[in-house]
Nucleic acid binder design. Sequence first.
DNA 1: GGCGAAATCCAAAGCGGTTTGGATGCACGG
DNA 2: CCGTGCATCCAAACCGCTTTGGATTTCGCC
Lengths: 346, 346
Amino acid sequence: MSKGVNLKILSQRLNLSQTTVSRALNGYPEVSAETRKRVAEMADKLGYAPNSQARRLATGRSMAIGHVIPRSIHEMMNPIFLEFIAGAGETYSKHGYDMIISVVEDDQEEEAYRQIASRKKADGVIVHGPAHNENRHAILKDLNLPFVVHGRIAGAESETSWIDMNNRRAFQRATDLLLDLGHTRIALLNGLEHMDFARRRRRGFEDAIKARGLSPDPALMRSNDMTEPYGCDNAMEMLKSDNPPTAFLVSSMISAIGVARAIGQCGLITGKDVSIITHDDALSFLPNSGEVPIFTCTRSSVRYAGEKAAELLLAMIADPNSEPSSLHLDAELIIGQSTGPAPAKD
Amino acid sequence: MSKGVNLKILSQRLNLSQTTVSRALNGYPEVSAETRKRVAEMADKLGYAPNSQARRLATGRSMAIGHVIPRSIHEMMNPIFLEFIAGAGETYSKHGYDMIISVVEDDQEEEAYRQIASRKKADGVIVHGPAHNENRHAILKDLNLPFVVHGRIAGAESETSWIDMNNRRAFQRATDLLLDLGHTRIALLNGLEHMDFARRRRRGFEDAIKARGLSPDPALMRSNDMTEPYGCDNAMEMLKSDNPPTAFLVSSMISAIGVARAIGQCGLITGKDVSIITHDDALSFLPNSGEVPIFTCTRSSVRYAGEKAAELLLAMIADPNSEPSSLHLDAELIIGQSTGPAPAKD
DNA sequence: GGCGAAATCCAAAGCGGTTTGGATGCACGG
DNA sequence: CCGTGCATCCAAACCGCTTTGGATTTCGCC
């Protein structure tokens, strides 16, 4: 185990200058093919790999992307977040970038960004979980730190780069489907509505209902962290009420599973007595596939979003003068086993 | 926005040498209290923060911990992995360390470790998802890269640092509970059994059964990625067989939810007709709490494990000559709504 | 044969910190 | 009055790489 072969040693062994060796390895043209080959072979033989800290210091680029994730957001978006990270991580690897993740207390998020900028920890960041009153984009712009938002920051769509699915349209289509099936009492189990995505979904839901001359019933609209019990408890409560819904529109598979459990516990049958449409982020451990998926859903792969977000960001970093650009993904509406015509009233 | 205040500028503004300023900021003793105060104030005023690459290069420590995660493992342990990461991430933040995550192709894992070592990308790594025939510990030892295993590497327990729950004992106790309730046909829905944790759980299960003079039925033991459909499909198949189980021992809440779904679809009632015990990693988005949790479970917080693993690793890095040390966590056995006495035979 | 361009290669100057090995000044004891 | 010791502070080397600004050699061509 020869330890610590560095450029100096390598160049000495080759009777070449560090300059030439460095250039040979990094593909610069002013090096003869023969020399380049010699260098490559010796580097390989000695197991040389450039020290990344040194390279970063010299080039001024940290070759890393930061994800700062406050605990609260974290707990809320748990699996979705991971899936996104996985997608982004693959893109980073492909391009030689590192991914650094900072888990911070909620009130430390801004400070975390400042540190990333001032200490040059990363060349850019991904902003997760944009909320309604959002100012991170302003801070980041001020810090001169390139960023891409996963989701959208309302009011700043044109001046920021972002990747998002069409939340409003997806939930509008889903609601339309339920209405077409004859459902009139439709419940919405939404995510936390201070989050941008949840607001848009709600709007889609309400738009669709109003378009039929109906009006959404506040008693049937809930908003919270998308856990399993959230789905179960709320569904249960509504199903036991005087005027229960015949369909649920749910913001997450996880909560939808809870809704299905509640329906079962009430002795009803999902897809017959009560319909469910859920949004499906295509989480790998909750596959909702097969010829006829369990849940009728609006589907958009969050992993894919992660890949694309990373690509967007790396492109921005490569060309700092580029205009902000965005990607608006359309969710598929997929018919599964959890929807059926509204039961006849009796 | 004064950009790029570095040590040099800061020291000039103070009419001090870089040495003194550096020492003042880093708490070395050979600096008068008054000077230290002056330095701190000016640094604050100018918004100075040391460039991390430069510091890393100078100190030779990268102040980062690596997590390399092959795609396959990733997809398997999805939410569990994230929760662990979250715990570890908090510990890192507290100690000023960065967390860097590399998502790599399966056959690139070893290469990833080599790069971390040779390019000095991280001061240590966490090894995830140890399998049966495992050699990562050998590689890492060879690379001289400190590491902590989440789980255990069979045969290398004493020479490696690890943190793990008592898988065997947990599943033995769970099985005992079911046996005590009169169940004799108990199914095991395990994780992938080339993984160390799954092997141990199976052993616990089999030991308990054999201890009663019974013998485990191979037809009732399954092993796979712990998805929801895995639980549902396999439970369904077994429940429809000639000699169905009356209880299920499941390796993950996610699959347990699938089992519950299958039970419901068969018109049976969980906790009455069929019992379930699951392992509960205390995932935040799948809370199984309340006075009487939905599922009877063996519980061990994987997030806590993450915190502790990180602490162990940081301690190793701080004292490179320390002996390997480990943490063996005991899972709680918690009675919920999903278990009851075995139904009388008819 | 001589000259300019092209092809190669190199010494040295950063990048922004930390750390070594002294300097300098001052109080104190003899 | 001078040597000592301590408290402060500093100049310069160093970490390992990239990159600037030449220097040297080679080669085609008139």
